[in-house]
Simulated assay, not measured.
Amino acid sequence: MNPDTLRTDTNFAGRIPELYDRLLVPMLFESYATDIAKRAAALGPSHVLETAAGTGAVTRALARELPAHAELVATDLNQAMLDRASMTPIDKPVTWQQANALQLPFDDARFDIVVCQFGAMFFPDRTAAYTEAHRVLRPGGALLFNVWDRIEENEFADTVTEALSALFPDDPPLFMKRTPHGYFDREAISRDLSNAGFDAPAHFDTVTRRSHASSAEDVAIAYCQGTPLRNEIEARPRASLDDATSACAAAIAARFGSGAVDGKIQAHVILAQR
């Protein structure tokens, strides 16, 4: 990934955090957040680090699932996302900290578990990120994370990408396919983990859910305006952000119907033991 693309794909700023939290979190992330939080709690950790916490979907789920004594530290590269996350009250104390997953500001063997939901796809150097997770984990600790499966297994994202490819045929915005749905190969993930020092074979579990939204327009707004896909659309002169959103809403409605819509989503959950 070239530096300009990296900056675009990881730029969660402006209106993106608010739309992401209001539309995408319930549409895509909450059910997986509950799933990964329950898996984390089942391991009985006392010191928990979350990386790429975003607007706090997993943080809130971890706060519900972890025992009262467990320490919870939530980090993200983007301060704007953490600012949005901290606006939602959480009954359990949480330490919010801006941090780069490739350069974690924590001591060696500091945590029992590192949890990361749908963040590994955005890391410019995944082996470096896993190496940092390995470093801050105590012996016997675990890295627990999930990644989206290929875009064809995620119907809303696939439909939006196809609609935008038709609207911008000469230079289609491919953020969804390139980044959120670009890191699904089990062999590649296993190789990156092994290179980072996780010697035991990682455990993979493929989890399928349904994504729900009140309308096709909400889906289109969520993807086109509530993710870094917005940055790609706004950089293209052929059509406006509103035009792109409308085109995607029409495509979603054509495929899934008018009124409330739902589509298949699928992800891999990975557990790597230190």
Rank of each mutant, 00 (worst) to 15 (best):
L104G: 08
L271K: 02
R209P: 02
P45K: 01
D91W: 01
G259F: 10
Q266F: 08
R135W: 07
T208M: 04
V147S: 04
P173W: 05
G259K: 12
R22N: 14
Y223M: 06
T5P: 03
D112T: 02
R64S: 03
T159A: 05
G226C: 00
D125M: 05
V160G: 00
D199F: 11
L6I: 12
L23A: 08
F118R: 01
A142S: 12
Y20P: 07
T206D: 13
I113L: 15
A250F: 09
R64H: 01
D149K: 09
V73A: 03
H134Y: 14
D149Q: 07
D35Y: 03
G226H: 01
L229A: 00
H134G: 06
Q79L: 13
A13P: 02
L23R: 10
W148C: 10
F156R: 06
M27H: 02
I90M: 12
S240K: 11
A40S: 07
R22C: 08
G119D: 03
F256M: 05
R236T: 11
P3I: 02
P93F: 04
P45I: 03
E50W: 03
M81W: 05
L19K: 01
W96N: 07
P17T: 09
C116T: 12
A129C: 13
A13H: 01
S215Y: 08
N154P: 11
P105N: 14
T208E: 07
P124C: 12
D83C: 10
S190E: 06
V58D: 06
L164T: 04
P26Y: 05
A80N: 04
G119L: 00
S215D: 07
L6C: 08
D171K: 15
L24D: 03
H47A: 15
D21C: 08
F145E: 01
G119I: 00
